[in-house]
Amino acid sequence: MKFRGKMTDAGAVRQLTNLASTLAKMKAASVTLRLSKDLSIFSMCEEAGSGVICWCALEQGQLFTELTLEGATAEHNQICMHLSPALVASALTSSKNALGVANSVKLKLTNKKSPCLTFQIDLPSIGLNPRTCIHDVPITLIPRSEWPLHEHPEVPIPNISIRVSSVKKVRTVIDRLRKLSSKLNIRASSNGDLCLRTETDAGTFATFFQHMPVIQSEDTNDGNVQTVSLWIDAKKIAQLLASDQLNTEYLTLGLIDDRLLHVILTQNDMHLHYLIAAISL
C-alpha cells in the first residue's frame, strides 16, 4: 500500500484543518479515513461497533495537486484507516506561521515503528533555507474484511428537506432550548416554515422560522401543506452545531417523519453529513 498526496492550495489546507478540528470537537470514539483515487472520506461512528453517523467526502482533485495511491489490491484500490482527528488538526495548525501559510503540505503513508500518516509541511522562512515541519500521526490500518462497517449508510430520501442560512441564530436557539429540556421537536412544512419546539414542566417554548427555501418535499396532490416532525435528543444537534469549525454557510435539514434527521453542514463544496435518530417520547 502506498499513499502520497501534495497540497499546495491554502484553501484546501484550511478546509482539511477545519474539518479535522470539527471532527475532533465532536469527541468521537474513532474516526475512519478512507482514501481512494477519487475521494478522501472521513467518517465517524457514535460508539465503537455502531454504524456510521457522520461523514464528509472530499474530492482528491480539489484537495491534492499530486496524488499517488496504491490500495490494498488492484481491485479494491482503497486504503482505510483509523486516526485521531485531534492529531490531524494539531499537525495542520503548524501549516501557518508568522510569515504566512505553508508553501505545501505533503501527506504520506509511512511505517515508522508503527504505521503513520506523515504530514510534511514546508513553511516560509526569512532565511534562504526553507523550514520543514514533520508530524507523524499514528494510524491503524483497517483490514479489508471490516471495510463495509465503515461505509456510510444510504440515507433515504427525506420527506422534507429545508435549507437554513441563519446558522448562528438556529445554533443559539437550539442551545437555549437544550438548556430548557433534553428533547427537541423539529417540524418543517413544505411552505418553508421551520419550528423548533420543546416542552417541559415549566412550560412550552417554540421558535418559528419562516420562508426557508425548501429543497425537497413530497408532492401532495391536493395542494395541501405537508408537515413533517420528529423529536430528537437536543444534546446531539446542539453538540454538532457547537463543534462546527467549518464556517458553515448553510445547513440542510432533511426530515424523515418520526425516524431520522439528516443534517448537512455546507461550506463551499464541502458537505458534512450527520444523522440523528428520532426518539420516541
Binding site: F205, A206, T207, F208, Q210, H211
Partner: peptide, 12 residues
C-alpha cells in the same frame, strides 16, 4: 421577535 423569527413561550 427578531428579524422575522418569532418565538412563543408559555411559562407556567
Amino acid at each position: 421577535e427578531e428579524e422575522d423569527v418569532v418565538t412563543e413561550c408559555s411559562i407556567r
